[in-house]
Amino acid sequence: MQDTVATLISALLGAGLYATMSYGLALIYGVMKIINLANAGVLMLGAYVTWWMWDGFALNPLLAPLIILPAFYLFGVVLERIAVRRVLEQEPIVSLLLLFGVWLILQNIAYAVWTGDTRSIETPFVEATFKIWGIQLALPRVYVFVAGALTLAVLQLFLTKTQFGRAIRAVAQDREAARLAGIDVDRIYSAAFGLGIALSAFAGSLLSLIFPFGPDFGQTLQLKSFCIVVLGGLESFVGVAFGAIVLSLAEAFGLRWMPASYQNLISFVLLVVVLIAFPKGIAGLLRSLRRV
């Protein structure tokens, strides 16, 4: 029993992390209908920048997002303006290849600036643990979970309550109708892409508190993000959070029957099963069930 509760809690905490690293992917897909294959590179750079500011300038890693969010937003906007915009109207595979190229360049930046060595952040906060009902918990994991949940709440408020957020949703639902209603669709694209990149970098910054990382960091996480976003139906943030919980639970409980070295296979199997069985994600499946 104690064991099951511990597994559940650790799965939930993991879900917060998984959800955070998938919001950016979901936002960009929802609005622009392209898959950001550079996501893993952005996650990795977010982690590096956090580490670098801590290591070089003694900046508390918890404050790093204050710099990371605006910097990566800007990076995303520029990338959208100079490259991504040109391929939006082409076959989806073209943008995928373009962003794949961007990923390689981002990886190279990390190799060139910070070498291939594995880095990790070591502060008292990162190493702190505490006990609750006899279950040992790592403080940074709880912090990352809370940050992920807060991000979801803020995003949800932003998208439903603000004018700009509503414009983003309008473009996601129907680009042409939004344009007719007077929304500057190109500006929304830039903003959504920038925001998506900023969210991924933020997730990378949070990840750096938990995992050691190198330039190839994010590759397996990328696959998990895809799995989560596909599970969640590719468009809504609540769906993403839901997908994150499903994956996290499947991984945590799957480990009881299979060796730990196969853990990363779970996300792949889930991804393929969901893509093939319910192409609209579990959220889409529930929606269509409700309609029947």
């Binding site: 490259a83 190229g101 360049i105 990886q107 060139a112």
Partner: peptide
Amino acid sequence: KYSLDLSVFGLLLCAIVL
């Protein structure tokens, strides 16, 4: 030292796609 092959291939890929 700087693993510049990644950039070369990445830039080539982007340029070709664009």
